[in-house]
Design a protein around this nucleic acid. Structure first.
Lengths: 155, 155
DNA sequence: TGACAATACATGTTTAAACATCTATCATGG
DNA sequence: CCATGATAGATGTTTAAACATGTATTGTCA
């Protein structure tokens, strides 16, 4: 028995389809993110910080500069320098002033950061699998496709 | 030409399906919420504050107590009393100590709050329609259904 | 080349989020 | 009916988010 958003939030009035879709997506993101944050919390990371580490792990050996990291974030963060400051304090990343353009600062993940990500890889995969185990994979693939289209109105 | 999340975020490695779904949902929520927040900002409201007002508009004449409002939020907020404080300062809601149980405080939307919601109704509907106009409605309905199921693993 | 604009990031400040703790009121069992 | 515990909010505090502004470096064009 699947509960609709309407029931979940005990809403008194139904919503127009477009608004319902928006609300449902935001709600679903909140639910997934909560489960996700629970895995990260014991390790002292927020989802956004984890996102940064993943980006830097994926980046090449010369790291990425601040605005590049910001541009790849799942959700925009308005103060990437200070977010990197905190990760640096945790010794999870380092920053080096770029030589080719001294305005830029390249951020790199440290071995400690890599090790942390490594220990998280399993639990993260597990929580995703658990949360979505009841959905058949064809449907998940279709969902991905729908969301890609939703985000990109073809001009 | 639809861009995948992979391309959007310039990710260097692909993700397992389950994780990709999580990321895609969170990303889509961020995109929609940004457009939504733009509509609210000129009126000095955050999406969460708008959410509270909508909940209180939907509630009956005796309003809702603090924990009821918190329980209906799209995303959990950890400090509903102070969130209501701010809405009260804006004169958008009022609070009355409940007579039947003096521990509780019932929050009510004010005429000013109702008027604000009323002026927002149009623009909000528009931004939703614009964002989703390129999707056919059958597909949106299917998306709603998929997300409902995703959030509610049937035991 | 040298002034001016643009870029990349740093820093300051205000506000709110997040978490813990405290107070007032009610429910319950002896 | 009183003690104990539970519930509903309020309040205190720390941290981070959000926004504006400042500074160093580079690009550009007269």
């Amino acid at each position: 028995m699947v509960r609709t958003l309407h029931e979940e939030l005990q809403s008194d009035q139904p919503y127009p389809l477009e608004e319902a879709v928006h609300l449902s997506i935001v709600r679903t993101a909140a639910v997934l993110d909560h489960a996700f944050a629970q895995v990260l919390k014991p390790h002292g990371l927020t989802p956004a910080q984890y996102n940064v580490l993943r980006i830097l792990r994926g980046a090449g050996d010369d790291g990425l500069c601040v605005y590049e990291v910001a541009g790849r974030m799942l959700r925009p963060v308005p103060d990437m320098p200070r977010m990197l400051d905190r990760l640096k304090q945790m010794r999870l990343i380092v920053r080096r002033r770029a030589t080719e353009d001294r305005r830029m600062v390249r951020a790199h993940i440290t071995p400690k950061g890599l090790a942390l990500l490594h220990t998280l890889d399993g639990p993260i995969r597990e929580v995703h699998e658990q949360r979505l185990a009841h959905m058949n994979r064809t449907r998940l693939a279709a969902l991905l496709d729908t969301l890609d289209q939703l985000r990109n109105p073809e001009t």
